[in-house]
């Protein structure tokens, strides 16, 4: 079973085989509305936790996606770059943005799990 963690900025990272699959949460996609543009970072880029990594734009606004953990970009979702609406249809699945080779898996423990993130959404309004 894969492990999913969320940031306060509404990115998720799902851990699969020592790599982190990064995207924006279901809540973030709902808030953003119809996504019309997505840009993933270049493969090979070394990201530190909190670095601006990708861009997601909706009809309403542009939004930076920050690296939820540190690591090197090992894959990007070219399908979502050509069909940005996938983020609205399936944010946690086909709407992923990029994969990171985790530099420090211990960073994951600072992020929220599913239930902590639900609580966060409830209390942060």
């Amino acid at each position: 079973m894969s492990q999913i963690r969320y940031t306060k900025d509404h990115e998720y990272v799902r851990v699969e085989d020592g790599e982190g699959v990064v995207g924006i949460s279901e809540h973030a996609q709902q808030q953003l509305g119809d996504v019309v543009f997505a840009e993933a970072p270049p493969i090979g880029k070394a990201l530190k936790k909190g670095d601006p990594a990708a861009v997601v734009e909706s009809v309403k606004a542009a939004s930076d996606v920050f690296a939820p953990v540190s690591g090197e970009v090992v894959a990007v979702n070219s399908e979502v770059e050509s069909t940005p609406g996938l983020i609205n249809e399936d944010a946690l699945g086909r709407g992923w943005l990029f994969r990171l080779k985790l530099a420090d898996p211990a960073e994951l423990s600072a992020l929220m799990d599913e239930s902590a993130y639900s609580d966060y959404l409830r209390t942060s309004g």
Partner: peptide, 12 residues
């Protein structure tokens, strides 16, 4: 109202 449940794209 900025948009309704249909969303900006569908409303446009």
């Amino acid at each position: 109202p900025i948009h309704y449940p249909a969303g900006v794209l569908a409303e446009h």
